[in-house]
C-alpha cells in the first residue's frame, strides 16, 4: 500500500519526518483525515491534536496552529509549535493550565483575555494528549 510522506517542521526545528499511513489534523473547519492519494489541499490548522497512523500504530502530537500542504502524497505541516506525546510533561502542562485559568479570572484587557484563552487551549490539549499516552502505556504493559 502506498504511504504518505510527512514532514512536520516548526520555525525552530523539524519535529517529524517519515512515512505514515494517515494523518488526522484539526483543520480550521473541523477535523480532516489525509490518506495516500489525497487531493491537493492547503489548509490552516487550529490548535489541537494531531494523530498519525504508522503501521497500525497511532502517534499523537499536540499542535498549536499552523498550515498543512498536501501535494502528491507529500504532506508538509508548518506548525507554530508541535510536540510529540512522549515529550509532553503532564505535570508542567497541568500547572500551565492552572496558571492560565487564574490569569483568565484576573485578566482585565481584551489582549490579556485572548492570550490566556489561547494558553489555556494549548495547555488543555497537552494534558489531554499526555493522559492518552499514559493510558496507552498502561494498556500495553
Amino acid at each position: 500500500m502506498s504511504k504518505l510522506n510527512l514532514k512536520i517542521t516548526t520555525a525552530e526545528s523539524e519535529v517529524f519526518s517519515g512515512e505514515v499511513d494517515s494523518i488526522t489534523l484539526p483543520a480550521s473547519e473541523g477535523e480532516i483525515t489525509v490518506l495516500p492519494s489525497h487531493v491537493k489541499i492547503i489548509s490552516s490548522i487550529s490548535p489541537g491534536e494531531l494523530r498519525l497512523k504508522i503501521d497500525n500504530e497511532e502517534q499523537f502530537l499536540s499542535i498549536s496552529g499552523g498550515f498543512v500542504q498536501v501535494n502528491n502524497d507529500l504532506a508538509i505541516i508548518l506548525a507554530d509549535s508541535a510536540e510529540r506525546d512522549s515529550e509532553i510533561d503532564i505535570e508542567r502542562a497541568e500547572e500551565a493550565l492552572k496558571r492560565a485559568k487564574e490569569r483568565l479570572d484576573n485578566s482585565e484587557s481584551e489582549v490579556d483575555l485572548l492570550r490566556s484563552i489561547q494558553s489555556m487551549r494549548r495547555a488543555t490539549i497537552r494534558v489531554k494528549i499526555g493522559k492518552k499516552r499514559n493510558s496507552n502505556r498502561r494498556r500495553n504493559q
Partner: peptide, 26 residues
Amino acid sequence: IYSGEFIYEPDPVSVLKQLIPRYVET
C-alpha cells in the same frame, strides 16, 4: 513543482491572511 489546482480550507484569502504574518515572522 507545486503548480496545479489546490483545495483551500477555508479559502485562499483566509489562509493567506494567516500565512503572511507568519511569513514575516519567519
